[in-house]
Measured scan of single mutants.
Amino acid sequence: KKKREHFRQLLDETSAITLTSTWKEVKKIIKEDPRCIKFSSSDRKKQREFEEYIRD
């Protein structure tokens, strides 16, 4: 659960993310961040979390 919170925090702090951002764009920006790396090695899982984040 904590990894998820850190991942969401990373998304919060990434000012380039807007409601129209695509995962492909965002992934390029955040892929080097340790919170992104630690969250999951599964790209699909990160994408799902990102899409949920955008909906919230």
Rank of each mutant, 00 (worst) to 15 (best):
F39W: 02
K1R: 07
F50T: 06
L11N: 03
E52L: 15
I29F: 07
K46R: 14
K28V: 08
T22Q: 10
K28E: 15
I29K: 07
D56A: 11
L11T: 03
Q47G: 06
Q47L: 05
W23D: 03
L11F: 00
I37H: 11
K45R: 13
K31I: 08
F7S: 05
I30F: 05
K45Q: 11
K3I: 09
K28Q: 15
I29S: 09
D43N: 01
R55H: 06
F39R: 01
Q47S: 08
E52K: 14
E25R: 00
E32A: 09
K45Y: 10
F39Q: 05
S41D: 13
P34F: 09
K45M: 15
S15C: 11
E51A: 07
R35N: 11
L11G: 01
W23F: 06
T14S: 02
K2W: 00
E13G: 00
A16L: 08
Q47W: 00
Q9A: 11
F50I: 01
C36S: 07
D12H: 00
S42L: 04
K31M: 13
R48S: 13
K38F: 10
A16Q: 09
L11R: 00
V26L: 00
F39G: 02
I54G: 11
K38I: 07
I37P: 10
K28S: 13
R48T: 13
S41E: 12
R44F: 13
L11D: 09
H6P: 02
E32K: 04
R44W: 13
D43L: 10
C36N: 05
S40D: 11
T14Q: 10
R35F: 02
K3P: 06
E49V: 11
K38W: 09
T18N: 10
S21R: 00
K45D: 15
I17F: 01
E52S: 14
K46L: 14
S41F: 06
R55W: 04
T20P: 08
V26Y: 06
E25N: 00
R8H: 09
F50V: 06
V26E: 02
T22P: 05
K28N: 15
K31E: 15
V26H: 02
T14P: 00
T22L: 05
K46Y: 06
T14H: 05
R8F: 02
T20Q: 07
S42M: 08
F39L: 02
S40K: 02
V26M: 12
I29V: 12
D12S: 10
K1T: 00
D56S: 15
D12G: 05
K45G: 10
R35T: 00
E32D: 14
R44Y: 13
R8T: 02
T22F: 01
D56C: 08
S42V: 14
D33G: 03
F50R: 02
R44K: 14
Q9H: 05
R44S: 14
T18H: 15
K31D: 12
T20W: 06
T18Q: 11
S21A: 06
I29E: 11
T14V: 12
R48G: 11
T22R: 03
C36V: 04
Q47V: 03
E49D: 03
K27S: 05
T20H: 11
H6W: 05
K28I: 07
I17T: 05
L10F: 04
K2E: 14
K28F: 06
L19A: 14
D12W: 01
I30E: 09
T18K: 01
I54N: 08
K28M: 09
A16T: 10
E52G: 13
L10K: 06
S41M: 11
E51Q: 10
L11W: 00
S40C: 09
S41L: 09
S15Q: 12
I37G: 02
E13P: 04
E51V: 03
R55Q: 15
F39H: 05
K28D: 12
S41A: 12
R48Y: 12
Y53V: 06
Q9P: 02
R48L: 15
I54F: 04
K24V: 12
T20D: 14
E52F: 06
S21T: 13
S41G: 09
H6Q: 15
K24C: 09
F50P: 08
T14D: 02
E49S: 02
D56H: 11
L11V: 03
S40M: 01
F50Q: 07
C36M: 03
E51F: 03
E51D: 13
H6G: 12
K27H: 06
L19W: 08
I37Y: 11
Q47T: 02
A16D: 14
E52I: 14
F7M: 04
T18V: 02
I17D: 01
T14L: 08
E49M: 07
T22K: 07
S40G: 09
T20K: 10
R8A: 07
I54V: 14
E51I: 01
F39D: 06
V26I: 15
K46F: 01
T20A: 08
S21I: 06
T18L: 10
W23S: 05
D33T: 03
P34H: 03
F50G: 10
L19V: 13
I30C: 05
R55N: 12
S41I: 08
F7N: 05
L10W: 01
K2T: 04
K27W: 06
D33H: 00
E49L: 01
I54C: 08
F7I: 06
S40F: 03
I30S: 02
I54K: 14
S15D: 13
I30A: 01
L19T: 06
R48I: 10
F39T: 03
S40H: 09
E51T: 04
E51S: 07
D12N: 08
F7L: 03
R4W: 14
D43A: 01
K45P: 08
R44L: 11
K24D: 11
R8S: 02
S40Y: 01
D43Y: 00
I37V: 12
